[in-house]
C-alpha cells in the first residue's frame, strides 16, 4: 500500500512530511486501533512508540512503523494521560506501552493491566513526569521511591 493510501484509509488529512529519515504526519483524533489493524493487514513492521509531553498537559504519541524499509511516523495527541492500547493487535507494542506507563503514567485502555517494566512493581508510575523539573545532577531514582528513602 502506498503511504498516501494509508492516510486515506485512516481519514487523516495529511499530507506526509517527507524528510531524509522517512515520512511523518500529524493525525489529530487518530483511531490508533484502526491504524494498528491497518498496519497488520499491510504487513508493516512495528518499530516503536515514542511519548513526549504536550504543552497542554496531554501527551503526544508517535507511532513508528516500517513499510518496506521506509519509516512512517504517525503522531497524535491525547488529553490527560489516557490512550487506547494496541498490544492485543500488536504484541510487539506491549513493552513500549508498559514503558510509557513507567515514564509518563499513561493509562492504556483495553488491556487487563499495564505492569511496570523498567520500574519495580511497588514504584509509582510516571517517573519522567514527576521528575521533569529535576536537574542533571539529581537522581531520578530518589523520586521513584515512595517510602522517602534516598538511593
Amino acid at each position: 500500500m502506498e503511504p498516501d493510501a494509508i492516510l486515506e484509509e485512516l481519514a487523516v488529512a495529511g499530507p506526509w512530511d517527507v524528510r531524509g529519515d522517512g515520512r511523518g504526519v500529524e493525525a489529530p483524533g487518530l483511531d490508533v486501533r484502526a491504524m494498528a489493524r491497518l498496519m497488520l493487514d499491510i504487513e508493516a513492521r512495528w518499530v516503536t512508540l515514542t511519548v513526549t509531553p504536550a504543552p497542554d498537559d496531554g501527551f503526544r504519541l508517535l507511532f513508528h512503523w516500517d513499510l518496506d524499509g521506509s519509516l512512517l511516523t504517525i503522531s497524535t495527541e491525547v488529553p490527560g494521560a489516557r490512550a487506547m492500547s494496541i498490544a492485543d493487535i500488536w504484541p510487539a507494542a506491549d513493552w513500549a506501552e508498559r514503558e510509557a506507563r513507567d515514564y509518563y503514567a499513561i493509562e492504556f485502555e483495553g488491556r487487563d493491566d499495564v505492569p511496570a517494566l523498567m520500574l519495580r512493581p511497588e514504584d509509582e508510575p510516571g517517573l519522567f513526569s514527576r521528575t521533569a523539573e529535576l536537574g542533571r545532577n539529581e537522581d531520578p531514582a530518589d523520586a521513584a521511591r515512595t517510602d522517602g528513602a534516598a538511593s
Binding site: Y103, A116, L117, M118, L119, R120, L127, F128, T131, L134, G135, R136, P140, A141
Partner: peptide
C-alpha cells in the same frame, strides 16, 4: 527486566 535501568533517556534530556 529493568535490573540495569539507568534512565539514560532522562539523563540525555539534561
Amino acid at each position: 527486566v529493568g535490573f540495569n535501568f539507568r534512565a539514560i533517556e532522562w539523563l540525555a534530556e539534561r
